[in-house]
């Protein structure tokens, strides 16, 4: 018996609509299940770290998965003391923020010219910058150390800020150039008609349009600098200038490691990175309408 053909037209529309919205709902559900699963995988290490940061080392030895029987907030005070986080947090902040600021400013400026202009040796210079991404940093530890000695840089924040800028520039320029190249050429042309100079075009047009990619490189550079260990270890000798990653290594002895206080320290060290990400996250996804209109 034919039971599908004789449906009135409106009803068919309705059915199709409900079917459509049903499908949409199912799809949405699938997406959410998928995203939730992904979130669990991503959050597990952090929650695990957070939970264990309240345990005693004994309790951690007994079981790494059990819920803490008593919550030792004292671990945080201990971690703060052992890792000298009071001092090192401000050092890391000063070094990290200044290095990121200069990396992105210098990098964005250089990228603007590399991406939007055409001049002699342009490709060579661009490639020269990109080479920097192919260098394993541990190979440069000793030469850099000797170089900084010769320049008498060791007893200042510059001993880390400058190498962080130098090693942050390649990836910064690489990413920014690729983004800045993708804007339409008409942008400058209309600006020039309006009488804008190249600097004005950079500040008021290209830079605002590049905000998503600027946010990207700020995040990448900040994380790299915040977690950087080898340069900080070798290039800094003055205990007053050390950074957070060095402090966090204080929990590791020759034969033993105090994991629970280390986790308390690591939890605290993670907070600034998350704050930076949250502050910049909106720039990442805020479609810069300026680009869309003029492009």
């Amino acid at each position: 018996m034919p039971h599908t053909i004789t449906v009135p037209p409106e009803k068919a529309m309705l059915e199709r609509d409900t079917r459509h919205s049903m499908r949409k709902k199912i799809l949405k559900l699938v997406v959410y299940i998928f995203l939730t699963a992904y979130s669990i995988v991503n959050l597990f290490p952090i929650l695990w770290m957070f939970m264990n940061s309240f345990k005693s080392d004994d309790a951690f030895s007994q079981s790494v998965l059990a819920w803490p029987k008593q919550w030792l907030f004292a671990n945080y005070a201990e971690a703060w003391r052992v890792a000298k986080l009071g001092l090192y947090f401000s050092n890391s902040m000063i070094i990290g923020v200044l290095a990121v600021l200069f990396t992105v400013l210098l990098g964005a400026f250089a990228s603007y010219f590399l991406a939007r202009f055409r001049f002699k040796h342009q490709t060579k210079i661009y490639n020269y910058f990109v080479f920097g991404m192919l260098i394993p940093i541990h190979a440069t530890l000793v030469p850099l150390f000797i170089l900084e000695n010769k320049l008498h840089m060791q007893n200042s924040y510059l001993s880390l800020i400058v190498p962080y800028i130098a090693f942050g520039l390649p990836i910064t320029i690489f990413i920014l150039v690729s983004f800045m190249k993708s804007f339409s050429k008409d942008i400058e042309e209309s600006a020039i008609m309006d009488g804008c100079g190249p600097l004005r075009i950079f500040w008021s047009i290209i830079l605002p349009m590049s905000m998503p990619s600027i946010a990207t490189v700020v995040i990448i550079n900040f994380i790299n600098n915040w977690n950087e260990f080898s340069f900080a270890l070798v290039l800094v000798s003055n205990p007053d200038l050390k950074t957070v990653p060095l402090g966090l290594s204080n929990f590791v002895g020759q034969y033993t490691t105090s994991y629970t206080t280390q986790m308390a320290g690591l939890t605290m060290a993670l907070i600034p990175v998350i704050i930076v990400f949250l502050c910049l996250e909106s720039y990442l996804v805020k479609g810069m309408t300026a680009g869309a209109v003029k492009g």
Partner: peptide, 18 residues
């Protein structure tokens, strides 16, 4: 410095005569 880091720093500094 902790043990492993110490050795790395010592060697780098020795190579740099510092």
């Amino acid at each position: 410095m902790p043990h492993d880091q110490y050795k790395l720093k010592l060697k780098a500094s020795a190579a740099g005569r510092q």
